[in-house]
Design a protein around this nucleic acid. Sequence first.
DNA 1: GCTGTCCGGAAGTGAAGT
DNA 2: ACTTCACTTCCGGACAGC
Length: 292
Amino acid sequence: HGVSASGISHQPFSVSVSVSFPQSLSSHYTKNRRCLINPSGSPGTLRWYQLSPQHWTKQHVLEWISYHVEENQFDASSLNMTCCSMDGSMLCQLTYDMLLALFGSLGHRLYQSLQELKAKPGETPLASSMEIEYVFIFFCTFKLTCFLRSGILLIPSSPESGGSDSDPEFHDAQSSLPTGRCLQMTTAFPISRSPRGTHLWEFIRDILIHPELNHGLMKWEDRKEGVFKFLKSEAVAQLWGQKKRNSSMTYEKLSRAMRYYYKRGILERVDGRRLVYKFGKNSSGWNQSQKL
DNA sequence: GCTGTCCGGAAGTGAAGT
DNA sequence: ACTTCACTTCCGGACAGC
C-alpha cells in the first residue's frame, strides 16, 4: 500500500491537515454495510474514544491503532501485528520503549495519544458530536481496507468487535485462521472487494462537512444552497492527489474533473465566480437536513 | 500583452464490473 | 477479454484583471 510514513510534510504546500479523507461514508459505509467494524451498528456499542483505554477490547485497540495509522499516513505494511491479541489493559501496561519497538515511529504518537486518553477518560479525542461517529466509521472502514491491502490481517476476535456470522467473507476469513494469533496475511485471507474509490465530489464534500479537519482549505458560501469555495485550491488538489497517489495532481486537473460533474448533475455552475462551485441535485450528504 | 482562471473537447489510464 | 466508469492529462480558447 505504501502510505508515506513521513506524512505530508514534504508537500510543497504548508497544509497542516492531519488526515486525508478516505472512502466517503455514503459511498462506502452505506453500500458496504458489511464493513468489519461493528457492521451491525448496534447503538449500545461504545467506541474507543468513548471509553477509557483501560477498558478497551482488543477491537478497540485495533481501531485506535488504525486511526493513528491513517492520521499519521503511516505505512501499515511495516507494522508488527502483535497487537492483534492485546486489549486495553494490556496496552496500558506497555512502556514507551515497548510501543516504539512494536510500532516503530508510530509508537511515539501512540504513546502520546494513550497518555492523553488516560488523562481524559471518556472524552473524545476529536470532539463530541454525531459527525465524529460518522468520521470514525469511515476512517475505520478505510483503514481496515488499507491494512488488508497492505498484507496485514486484522480480524476481530470478539463478538462485540465486529464481523458478522452472516457475512460469508468475514466468516471465511475468521474460520480460516487460528484465533489469538497475529498473522502476516499472505494469500489465505479472501480480501473483500472494495467499492470503487472515493469520488472526487465526495472527497470535496467530506472536507466541507468537517470544518474541524478542514484547516481553511475550503469554505461554505451558502451551506443551504450547497455553494462552496476553494480557499487553497492547489492544497486541496495536492490532498486529492495524495489520496489518489498522484503527485502531479493540480487544481487545473481537479477542476476539469469537477466540470464533468455538471453534466451529471452532481455539481451546478456558479457563473462569474472563481473557485466557487455548487452541489447539484445528484449529490448527497452535504446538506445538514439530509440523511446520509 | 500577460497572467490566472474557467471551460469543454479529445484521448488516455487503471480499476472494477461483466 | 472486453466494457464501463471515473477520472487524468493535455490542449486551445475565452474572459477578466492588471
